[in-house]
Amino acid sequence: MHPDLLLMLLADARLPVAGHTQSGSLEPAVVRGLGAAEVPAYLRLRLRTVVTVDAGTAVVARALVDSHGAAAGLGVLDRAWAARTSSPALRDAARGQGRALLRLTERLWPQGPGATALRAVESPPRAVVLGALACDLGLPGPALARLVGYDDVQTVCAAALKLVPLDPAVVTGWVRDALPRIEEMAESVAGLSEPDQVPATGAPQIEVWAQAHAHTTRRLFRA
């Protein structure tokens, strides 16, 4: 199977992993006054911070399964990710997304060493699940890192169309303009292979917003 096709499958919003419940913390940001015009800057901020953590984590998960197979100790990586994701609300949301992707993995690709290694971790975050799955599917590390970046940009932009509705072509322009930044981010993490190399680049403001969001009523998005 050509890895491009698998990459498209995983990047597709139609993948049944409850992607429609996520806003990449755009909802709490908008509640606190972030305007439509600032969304492109918000995308760049995320790519430099929280997305770098997730992409680095995914790449390391992939590398660990690549070198140790089903015996890969993903628990250490899970803890490294958690230490770099300080908001409990963001961790909960990411673990929820991990469960969703794990459900699909168990249904469609249960045999691989990554799927087996994941069973040893209790409720791994999406980045860990995605990285292990990427290894099972033969996706290269740089492609995986791009996938994490691209998915985040599209998640925020799709939520923007719900929260601050505007011409969808404008929003797609934001995605296009973010592509070089995704590439930069991906290059910065593509070569990582050990848990302690995962960048510690959380964004305190996003984490605070995410934390507050989890306690609001009347929210549209999980996170």
Binding site: A18, H20, T21, R99, R103, R222
Partner: peptide, 12 residues
């Protein structure tokens, strides 16, 4: 979507 085509969040 949540009750029809991507039921993941509800199933979980």
């Amino acid at each position: 979507t949540a009750i029809r085509d991507d039921i993941t969040a509800n199933l979980m």
